[in-house]
Design a protein around this nucleic acid. Structure first.
Lengths: 197, 197
DNA sequence: CTTTTCATGTAACAAGTTACATGATTAA
DNA sequence: TTAATCATGTAACTTGTTACATGAAAAG
């Protein structure tokens, strides 16, 4: 798949990148990361497996949007640390100005919840929503911890988020995640209350 | 693609269905729908195009999980009204007991928001978040309207949602959507305030 | 007069997942 | 001793999107 993108060029010789590729470039704007790092960090924004990331990275490298340095390690396997190039930044800047596509949420719990009035028993429903509530709580714990870590870091000068800080982007995304799971947890708790009474 | 699923059988001769297939069966538990109807109604829960729905429906029909009646229309094209069969309900019931996979959210705005601290100008940021806020408001309007329509319908006996009603499932999903976009809108407004001050 | 809605389908392609492949270190 | 973590890659497959194909009615 990666190979195909590398070859697919517009008439002017401009490579066409997909959202995942722009996502990788976005993550690389502040720091250098290995393919392994990127695979983990991209999950909250755009779920993808390493088998999709690695070929895409070599493709971005061939196109000159990223470059890597091979880091030899003793205790762990060697790794390639990727950095965005000026061409990559330029490509990303163009994309940022394009209005984003509609967000896509795929959640099978919604189908199962839909069946609550018909073929799902309240018993099964309780199980489903208790599990999801627990999932939300674990996400909230994690995000809270991350937010606090940023607020205590050296690059975070004031109590309120500062636009000029490179941490600003990460901060508002953690905040987004927090609000998302907060709302979902409340929903789960309200549905559970309905299933009882 | 649909053809492949129709042929892929476990050793015991049991067809393997994907989430989209179970989603279609879920929607068919209360009412009969055409492929066209299903394509529209499934969007909020699991985005899919008609080119994916139609072959899947014929596949489900071949496996005996749904059945259709051909409805001839004068002013509009003829259509196939699909209904779930007993075998389909049994298949769905089995699936409902299986713990659901993690929800997958893919939203390119998140990447663009991430770049706010680095290469996105506050000007561009404002545009992005104002557009998303408007999108959320339109969704909230739509969902509010739908919720009110249910509350005023004949099948909705009391002021609070009733578990036994077949409307219960739809109601809690509309509620979920409402909370989701409410939280997202607040986030957009808070980020916009940060971009100003 | 052009676009949207209704309605169903297929073909070609892009995107995403699962499985295969390797291998050392470390924690449970 | 089993599993997880780190680290990179490929092959085979499934899932999802775009484009092609048709055509009448209604709304702007």
């Amino acid at each position: 798949m990666g190979a195909l993108i590398c070859q697919s060029l517009l008439m002017e010789g401009v490579a066409i990148l997909n959202t995942l590729a722009y996502g990788l470039l976005s993550l690389l704007t502040n720091e250098t990361y290995s393919g392994y790092d990127l695979t983990q960090r991209i999950q909250p924004f755009w779920p993808a497996k390493h088998s999709q990331i690695y070929p895409l990275l070599s493709c971005l490298e061939q196109e000159g949007y990223v470059r890597y340095e091979l880091i030899k390690q003793n205790d762990k396997p060697d790794k390639k640390m990727y950095a965005i190039t000026d061409a990559g930044k330029e490509k990303l800047r163009e994309w940022l100005a394009v209005p984003p596509a509609e967000p896509a949420l795929r959640d099978e719990l919604l189908f199962k919840a839909f069946c609550l009035g018909s073929i799902v028993s309240p018993q099964e429903g309780r199980q489903l929503f208790e599990d999801r509530a627990a999932y939300c709580r674990s996400k909230l714990d994690y995000l809270d911890q991350k937010k606090k870590a940023i607020q205590q870091s050296a690059e975070w000068p004031s109590t309120t988020p500062v636009l000029n800080s490179p941490m600003f982007g990460i901060y508002i995304l953690l905040d987004k995640g927090y609000r998302r799971f907060e709302a979902e947890l409340e929903w789960c708790e309200d549905v559970l209350a309905m299933l009882e009474g």
